[in-house]
Design a protein around this nucleic acid. Sequence first.
DNA 1: TGTACATCAGTGAACGCGCGTTCACTGATGTAC
DNA 2: TGTACATCAGTGAACGCGCGTTCACTGATGTAC
Lengths: 195, 195
Amino acid sequence: MSDEKRYHHGDLRRALLEAAEAELAERGIEAFSLRAVAKRAGVSHAAPAHHFGDANGLLTALAAHGFRQFLEAQAAREAKATPDPSAQLVAAGLGYVDFALQRPALFRLLWGSNRPDFADADLSRAAEDAYRHLVEQVSAAGGRTVADESAMWAVAHGLADLLSAGRLKAIGSFPDDTRDAVLTDIFSRFLPRPQ
Amino acid sequence: MSDEKRYHHGDLRRALLEAAEAELAERGIEAFSLRAVAKRAGVSHAAPAHHFGDANGLLTALAAHGFRQFLEAQAAREAKATPDPSAQLVAAGLGYVDFALQRPALFRLLWGSNRPDFADADLSRAAEDAYRHLVEQVSAAGGRTVADESAMWAVAHGLADLLSAGRLKAIGSFPDDTRDAVLTDIFSRFLPRPQ
DNA sequence: TGTACATCAGTGAACGCGCGTTCACTGATGTAC
DNA sequence: TGTACATCAGTGAACGCGCGTTCACTGATGTAC
């Protein structure tokens, strides 16, 4: 039954989110349109309205979903690291960069666009969960000041943004394990200092 | 003669660049259109073609101009700092952030858009000048490795991007001199270490 | 100083296009009895 | 188990809009003589 043509899609909401991310990746947010997303999902161009209202509604839902995946990318690295708080903080930083490299279009939607409605309840909750995770990690590693927290966030964010945009060519051209080693070196410089 | 209505504008190229930046600031790159820029500059919507070809041509020229102003913002901070190489490097970082806060729309055009043609000769020269400046500053301050260079770039970029987007609310709410002190503290952690 | 002419910058009407939105509709699904 | 009906998801045609592009044009400027 999976390949028969059905009137009701069955899981159009999810299909539209995937199509939207693919559109962002291929054509960029500047050329994003609801009609192109619907076409990619194989559905008439008026169908998305049932699920998301308009294009910004779809992008808002996609951004909320993106923040959850963003946290998952960090959790995946943390699970592989030793439980030491500093190692966990470095792992979160590596996950931050992983996400930006693996989903650059989504990364830009989260951090560099004003189209999602960041006042939306679901999206703002997802974004705050991500922020809270950072604060907790820094705190567990001994960070106490605004500077501690901002330093770690900024360096992770800067590396992620520059790498996903194809700048920082030196690091970008390293094999994965070499890249991880250099990134770990950099993150280590920013670890909160013992008082 | 300045307020009389003339057929020839006189300095339409510059006026279009200014109008384009204002449009970016007000409506975002996602809604950028040549017609709106022309209207803002008080000129018919076909006029920009004489100077820039199309919208991407205009954005490319604006980006090249932006990179030069980006370097100027750093130079302004460097001129006020002591000549010590580490102090100069920190000053460059503060200028990086200044630019992002003062011209957020332009900052996003330079670092977060794919609409400018980065293969354009003038733009790529301007972008490379900015990159070279960074490398030289890091080198003068004793940086020798890819990690030294990337760390400094990433933290400056991350602070600039997050602050200009209104994240990092703690630092963003400080008065200017307090903000500079916190940023200087953060940059100092990333200064190349003596071997 | 004056005239003729070439070049250039900007105009404004016209065009075709893809967009979001609306709306009457149709087919599928779920539920009451 | 069957029937009737309400609700829901998706269709497809229609619309008006702003967009980029084209093009014949006009007014301004510069230059040759």
